[in-house]
């Protein structure tokens, strides 16, 4: 795609701007900010990736993956402020997901150990893991809040923290992983995955594009379940103290 074509694609930005202005939606400022940010961010990433791919130095690959994990953590931690030590738990979860998926891919020789494969796959895996973490933390916090009395009841009857929070934990794990599973059920029928579409547009063989997309889908399934389960089991103990008492936000010495 030439720069002229890219410039012409801005027509697709003009349409929402005109609609927003005409209908008084007040979205012009946010739309312009979003467009400018995405241009700057993607071009920057493009040039960085170009540099990393040509150098193919593992130090740069590790730095890039570190950057991806750092950005994902900074974004997801805002949803988990009620959980003590959430930053460390998120970093651990994203690192675990990254090491597991890359370990399987590289260990079995499914993908080659080059920046061209490792960085985009890491971005997809950690990005998916971040979305899952946000979904889980949101749901877990609201479940715990809604069922405080039930949690206290189980503790008061001699239940352990794990027993007291079990229902809320399982509900949050299920609720956060369902969208991934459901979207995979209609994959190819309702939507063509972005990566596969991109490969086909770029001239790849559709069958090969499908095979690679399947690999990514399976990886996403793993990261979804692992993220929610790991984050859940790392998070719930911090809601209780050593005396098996519920520790509430802002009152950690209860």
């Amino acid at each position: 795609m030439s720069f002229l074509n890219l410039t012409l694609s801005l027509i697709f930005v003009l349409i929402p701007l005109i609609l927003s202005k005409t209908l008084n939606l007040g979205l012009e400022k946010d739309t312009i900010i979003a467009v400018v940010r995405s241009i700057i961010q993607l071009l920057t990433v493009g040039y960085i990736l170009h540099f990393v791919f040509t150098s193919n130095d593992y130090l740069y690959i590790i730095l890039m993956i570190g950057l991806i994990i750092g950005a994902a953590t900074a974004n997801a931690r805002k949803k988990g402020t009620s959980i003590p030590g959430i930053t460390g738990k998120l970093i651990f979860t994203f690192l675990f997901v990254e090491l597991l998926t890359q370990g399987i891919l590289l260990g079995f020789g499914i993908t080659p150990p080059t920046a061209q494969y490792m960085i985009p796959i890491s971005g997809m895996m950690v990005g998916n893991s971040m979305v899952l973490a946000i979904l889980f933390l949101n749901r877990f916090a609201s479940e715990v809040h809604a069922y405080e009395e039930e949690i206290e009841l189980i503790l008061s009857l001699g239940g352990t923290p794990k027993q007291a929070i079990h229902r809320q934990l399982i509900t949050a794990i299920k609720a956060s992983t369902i969208p991934t599973i459901e979207s995979q059920k209609t994959m190819g029928l309702v939507q063509l995955p972005g990566m596969m579409s991109g490969q086909i547009i770029a001239g790849a063989d559709p069958i090969q594009a499908v095979q690679f997309q399947l690999l990514v889908l399976f990886l996403l399934l793993t990261t979804a379940v692992i993220t929610s389960v790991l984050l859940g089991f790392l998070s719930y103990p911090t809601l209780f103290n050593q005396r098996m008492q519920r520790v509430k936000e802002g009152n950690p010495t209860d």
């Binding site: 008061s156 009857l157 098996m244």
Partner: peptide, 15 residues
């Protein structure tokens, strides 16, 4: 756990 089984509690809200 032992304490809470020994000292039973029935609260007003009867959850």
């Amino acid at each position: 756990v032992t304490l809470r089984r020994k000292v039973g509690l029935a609260l007003q809200n009867a959850t």
